[in-house]
Each structure stands twice: as structure tokens, then as C-alpha cells.
């Protein structure tokens, strides 16, 4: 399965819904999307990963890159993920301490801290 991306504005947040597999082949598309959003002035991003079937370190690198970009504008990047196999990768790499990870888009959109 390839990568699918869609965006939606909710209040001052931009929700990026990601589906499919994020790997060395597809991660550049996600990177382009995040860069484009930040360049267009969207600094508070919520990346909904509920539709993601596979995530590897290349995908993690893109998310970390996105976080760095929004932080340069005092923005935020929150993740939505309930899938244990995806969460495990964040735990292994210690990135659960770097990304706020929420259980629903609604929760992530309302979060302020």
C-alpha cells in the first residue's frame, strides 16, 4: 500500500491524516507535505496516524524534522496513535518523550500544553 495524505483545518490546528506505509520510499512525500504546511504558515500540526500500517526510522526522521520546523516558529506537532505496533517504535527510540501522543484527533486539537 502506498502513502495517502489529506489535510483539514480545525481551529488554529492543521490535521494531517496519514494512511498506508511510511518507509524509505514514501517518507519523502510526507516530508514535502509537512514542509509545505510550515512554509504556508501552519505551525500547529496534528498528525493523525491511525491509518498508518507501517512506520520505520525514515518516517520517524521526517516527523522529527517536522517538529523542528514548527518549533522554529513556536508551533507544535502532536501525534494521534492508538496502535501498539506503531507506538512501540516511538518507545524503542525514546521519542515518546519528544512527541505529545494523543488517543484521538479531538483530544490533540484541544490540547494546549
Amino acid at each position: 500500500m502506498d502513502l495517502s495524505l489529506s489535510t483539514e483545518t480545525v481551529g488554529d490546528r492543521t490535521v494531517v491524516r496519514v494512511g498506508g506505509e511510511i518507509d524509505v520510499y514514501t517518507a519523502p512525500k510526507l516530508r514535502e507535505q509537512l514542509v509545505e504546511l510550515v512554509n504556508d504558515g501552519s505551525y500547529h500540526l496534528v498528525v493523525d496516524m491511525e491509518g498508518v500500517d507501517f512506520l520505520d526510522s525514515t518516517g520517524l526522521g521526517v516527523l522529527v524534522g517536522g517538529l523542528k520546523r514548527v518549533r522554529a516558529h513556536e508551533g507544535s506537532l502532536r501525534l494521534v496513535c492508538n496502535q501498539e505496533r506503531i507506538l512501540k517504535i516511538f518507545r524503542i527510540t525514546g521519542l515518546t518523550k519528544v512527541f505529545p501522543i494523543h488517543t484521538s484527533v479531538e483530544d490533540a486539537v484541544q490540547a494546549t500544553d
Partner: peptide, 8 residues
């Protein structure tokens, strides 16, 4: 990225 792959 290479380091992160090996870490995983």
C-alpha cells in the same frame, strides 16, 4: 538516519 535505523 542510519544511526536511528540501527537503534531500532
Amino acid at each position: 538516519e542510519d544511526d536511528m535505523g540501527l537503534a531500532v
